[in-house]
Design a binder for these strands. Structure first.
Lengths: 351, 351
DNA sequence: TTGTATGCGTTATCAG
DNA sequence: CTGATAACGCATACAA
């Protein structure tokens, strides 16, 4: 084979979108200059930058993120894995994550593990294979394999919703154990004496709240396992009513209940109303999380306020800090909680 | 400076993960064969397939999705853009989408437009630049630019939550206008005569429900704009109480209210309880969407049931069908709604 | 500050 | 059914 002629313009495989080369040609520069002008504008002279920007607009050029990821082995994707999309707790946090990312270049890849550690592991494996710039996962109860993957991940990792002494990397949340204990202590302080616990789904955080509640009861010498009613079923308002009814049938002396979340608490309130039990005088109710409705109910419902939105914001802040090269000094951020005492536990003093 | 020796094996840029070439070498085949064995197993002889599978396991090989996307100009990413992550309506649908994708190869890229058409357009632009295999967006009120982008997208597009005669491509939802009208008609049928409307956020779907409600009132000769109270503020239980209180102050003759969503309805119920107004005899309440809590409340709350979960499932089904080469005959799927009449509108007959 | 050469890991194309 | 080769579009490394 000798003089091979000029090949006529090759056919494009990709849908014919303008590439960085088209922009470069139009601006009369090289592709790498376009690349720089778009990612580090200050590294390119103003003259060229203007020409390039103009060409970008003219051609309606949008960079190909896959090509970029392939060439640089980096992405702008923040992987987020949560156990539930419908649970208000996580949707509040998710909203905060999206809000915190506002305006920045980071995108979210969201996974729903449905409270399954195995599914979480699967999702993390996929996410990590795409070289995320950071990861956010819920809690500290990963499978051993997932834990190892996270520890070997060469990107910042934030575990959210909980605090524990052994984070993979960073952590933002609060102590569910202490939250449960505080709720129990509050009910005791309000004068209730036969205090039950109602819980659903029983994920790790739920269990820790239950353990904290039990601790409070034990500390007061009031612990009675027969006052505890839980189910693996997922939480709902109706379920709160059913569980409370069951519990009251078994133990008519029950005079208060700590509901593991606010949906259950609302259901418990309705159940009391249906049964003609006066809240709070005859019966006290506390929820957990302090969703907006708790303060709007009648009577207003006591709950343990948690800063779900703040958790999401802080997680994003920590990640940004890491990516900017200023990893936060504190790896563990405890955002705490606060018992919001309201009418549903404000029993008139007895003597 | 002079005789440059053999370069020792080049340093890998990417974190040293095994590549398809490593697998190929280990299995003693070419890379393309590995590629085929993984994507179209039936196109490769069983012998080689087994050798390749073994090599994949040995090396713990995971394909690089970016390289794949770049080379093939295709991805397994389903872009989803919703107006809200916290609104139960969308989180139910999202959950269905994730459930519907279960087990399959498709991933979700989720965007939150926060009820902003401009943000929606921005997200769609980004998503489309990544060559999604399909798109799901809420409603039919895109900006003209977004509409055009969707029409030119070379992938299936499903608009969800609503139905309208002019979809971009496919559509799954129901008529909000008719839903609002049905709720109004129900209240009229129950004997209420001074029926108000309470609405928040006032996004396009909300407005259509309001329009339907107004139509019902007009049809009955009962339309009174002074009985309508709306706000751009986002919806909440507390807001439902406040709006109802305002409305009742202005119009003490009000004897029922159609709340544009269930949070508002719950707030309205609490407001009645606070004010000692008996529901349903003195005052009727209907919500919209029929969230789980409506049936669990006391009194149980009337609402318009919508199939948010079904919408998500059907959207995924339609997309899978398209990707499998069997585009559905019906491009528009109306999943309807149903008035769930409950205690809150079951007024004792008057004569 | 700008450009040249080349690699990133995979798949399309076409030949055998 | 299998393989050699050339893209895919961008970014790194190094030169100028």
């Amino acid at each position: 084979m000798t003089g091979q002629e000029d090949k006529p313009a090759r056919k494009r495989r990709g849908g014919g979108r303008p590439t960085i080369a088209d922009v470069a040609a139009r601006a009369g520069v090289s592709t790498i200059t376009v690349s720089r002008a778009l990612r580090d504008p200050h590294k390119v002279s103003e003259t060229l930058r203007d020409r390039i920007d103009q060409a970008v607009r003219d051609l309606d050029y949008v960079p190909d993120s896959h090509a970029s990821a392939l060439a640089s082995a980096r992405t702008n994707v923040l992987g987020v894995v949560v156990p539930s999309l419908t649970n208000n707790v996580f949707s509040d946090t998710l909203r905060a994550i999206y809000d915190g990312l506002e305006g920045g270049p980071l995108r979210v890849q969201l996974g729903n593990s449905r409270y399954s550690a195995a599914e979480e592991e699967r999702l993390l494996r996929i996410f990590l294979s795409q070289r995320p710039c950071a990861l956010i996962v819920a809690g500290n109860d990963q499978t051993p394999a997932a834990r190892e993957m996270l520890e070997n991940a060469d990107c910042p990792v934030v575990q959210i919703m909980e605090v524990s002494p052994d984070p993979v990397d960073m952590m933002v949340g609060f102590s569910h154990f202490e939250g449960g204990r505080a709720a129990g202590a509050h009910l005791i302080a309000q004068g209730y004496r036969h205090i039950g616990f109602v819980g659903a789904r029983m994920d790790p955080r739920t269990k820790r709240r239950q353990a904290g509640f039990a601790q409070a009861m034990k500390d007061a010498g009031m612990y009675d396992p027969a006052l505890i009613m839980t189910t693996a079923t997922s939480s709902s308002v109706a379920l709160g009513g059913w569980l409370l009814r069951e519990l009251r049938q078994k133990r008519p002396d029950l005079d208060a209940v700590f509901c593991n979340n606010d949906d259950l608490a609302l259901g418990a309130l309705f159940e009391c109303q249906r049964s003609g039990i006066s809240v709070p005088d005859e019966f006290g109710i506390s929820g957990f999380n302090d969703l907006e409705m708790m303060a709007a109910a009648f009577p207003t419902l006591t709950s343990v306020r948690t800063d779900r939105y703040g958790i999401g914001l802080r997680a994003v802040e920590m990640i940004r800090a890491c990516l900017d090269g200023h990893p936060p000094a504190r790896k563990i951020l405890d955002l705490g909680f606060a018992v919001q005492a309201r009418q549903s536990t404000a029993r008139s003093p007895r003597d």
